[in-house]
Design a protein around this nucleic acid. Sequence first.
DNA 1: AGTCGCATGTAAAAGGTTACATGATTCG
DNA 2: CGAATCATGTAACCTTTTACATGCGACT
Lengths: 205, 205
Amino acid sequence: MNTLGYAILSVLARRPCSGYQLSTYLEVLWPAKHSQIYPLLTKMEQKGFLAFEHVEQTGKPDKKIFSITEAGKEALALWMKESPSDRIVRDEFLIKMYSMWFTDEENAKKLIHDRISKLKRKVSLREKKIIKVENEGAHHASKHFGRYVLLNRSNFLDKEEISWCNWVLKLISNTNFFKLVLGFLSAGTLNQINQSINFFGELPI
Amino acid sequence: MNTLGYAILSVLARRPCSGYQLSTYLEVLWPAKHSQIYPLLTKMEQKGFLAFEHVEQTGKPDKKIFSITEAGKEALALWMKESPSDRIVRDEFLIKMYSMWFTDEENAKKLIHDRISKLKRKVSLREKKIIKVENEGAHHASKHFGRYVLLNRSNFLDKEEISWCNWVLKLISNTNFFKLVLGFLSAGTLNQINQSINFFGELPI
DNA sequence: AGTCGCATGTAAAAGGTTACATGATTCG
DNA sequence: CGAATCATGTAACCTTTTACATGCGACT
């Protein structure tokens, strides 16, 4: 079974869910589209890790409520003892930051300001969720502990990234980064950027 | 062209590289295996974004040094104006934190301590690189600016995650999280965990 | 004697996204 | 009247990983 499978077991270990609910719950844990979730649920049910019951609804489409089996719990318990594989981060914004020197100051600043906006939106959404968990009094003695600490983790890190963004903005202004680069390049057309490519030192990357 | 292609253009915009060098440089930007890089380099060369020259070596295998063309630079410049897609993070450790309540205190603490060790190792490696960039005097007026701010970003965030890890460890100890859970479960076998599954509130995830 | 670094490639398999398909209800 | 939510599924496609394939030199 793959990591998505264990993420599904982790959610179902707390509470039986439909595939639709799973897809929203998995967003913070291991994002996946429904087209990946539904076939995997079927596979896992066939292998005995999950069970499901049909629930008929009126006004809404019928659904399947999946729950974890004993075999599923054993699989999850074993997996919990394995050391986690390295995290994978793929972030186009980082590539654009890396190539900042290649664009104009206006665009570079816009990229950073947009990033800050996105991060702030995420942080404030999570803050509401955190307050909700705290009000339920479930933050340090239940299955909600994991959710509670993960929500906080995301907010700690996103706030730190906002600080970093502001730090970069300051660096750009204080050191006149773009003006200095343009100074070397005389004007800043692609041809002139070209001529400057081996102007600087020989550091890696 | 996909994001990996633009990551490659971003690296080659600074300095011509072999595919082998690219694979190491891309690690922080957009990780990729050589089996993905080599065929893409060929494709991008055929489309006119890259050019290469054969370099014969003695003692070492021959290599191809790729460099970005004018067409490549134009493509990169255009891409820099597009707003970046959302970051993708996949981290097994987060799933295990989420399912902390499902394992024993010893294992939970081990997972967190191992995470701290890994993060500390990464941070100290990066610190050396940062000092190197600063000594080259290249941090605020060159193509190395991007690399400099990205190295710092990773360290800011990893240090913040170390703080978070310690915060979680304290929470576990201070609130006797595991003892409280075991109290509810009476003993902690899988069967008894089973019986407790709907004991707590009805919060999402 | 064995592993690491340099160096390039292909093939197969697994993982993940986008698009196709359907359809009622509720809210603005 | 259009968009969002609930709800499940398949097919085609793209991306990424793992495995296969080779080979010399340097270091332990």
